[in-house]
């Protein structure tokens, strides 16, 4: 079980609880705006881009090479960027704060 907080572009703060699956799927199920997850989580659409709070980066680890390749051409990307379809929910994420990029 992990509590995950999303801050959307329209400044809503949404805290959700998840146990398994990807962070993207949790966000889509709960209608977090700015996270579409169009491709269903195979890392092809980049519609699940979030910025991890700097102090929470150790919980997710850095982006994989495939993610980095996708994100390096995204104007909103920075060192805290992740595609959240590639973040699996586990207890390790508890308390994490993610700012939706779009």
């Amino acid at each position: 079980m992990a509590q995950i907080t999303f801050i959307t572009n329209d400044n809503q703060t949404i805290t959700l609880e998840g146990t398994a699956g990807s962070v993207m799927a949790l966000a889509v199920e709960n209608g977090v705006s700015g996270i579409d997850g169009d491709c269903g989580g195979v890392c092809s659409c980049a519609t699940c881009h979030v910025h991890v709070a700097p102090e929470d980066m150790h919980k997710t680890g850095p982006a994989s090479e495939i993610e980095t390749d996708m994100l390096e051409l995204d104007d909103n990307a920075n060192e805290y960027s992740r595609l959240c379809c590639q973040i699996e929910i586990s207890g390790a994420l508890d308390g994490i704060v993610l700012t939706v990029a779009n």
């Binding site: 579409d36 169009d38 491709c39 195979v42 890392c43 092809s44 659409c45 495939i66 390749d69 996708m70 051409l73």
Partner: peptide, 24 residues
């Protein structure tokens, strides 16, 4: 069931396919 699939079948960047949601 290819798990990581960063394809460009719907294009990429600014002009990625507007109809992709419908097509999917």
């Amino acid at each position: 069931d290819r798990k990581i699939n960063p394809h460009v079948g719907f294009g990429f960047s600014h002009h990625n396919c507007l109809g992709a949601t419908h097509a999917r």
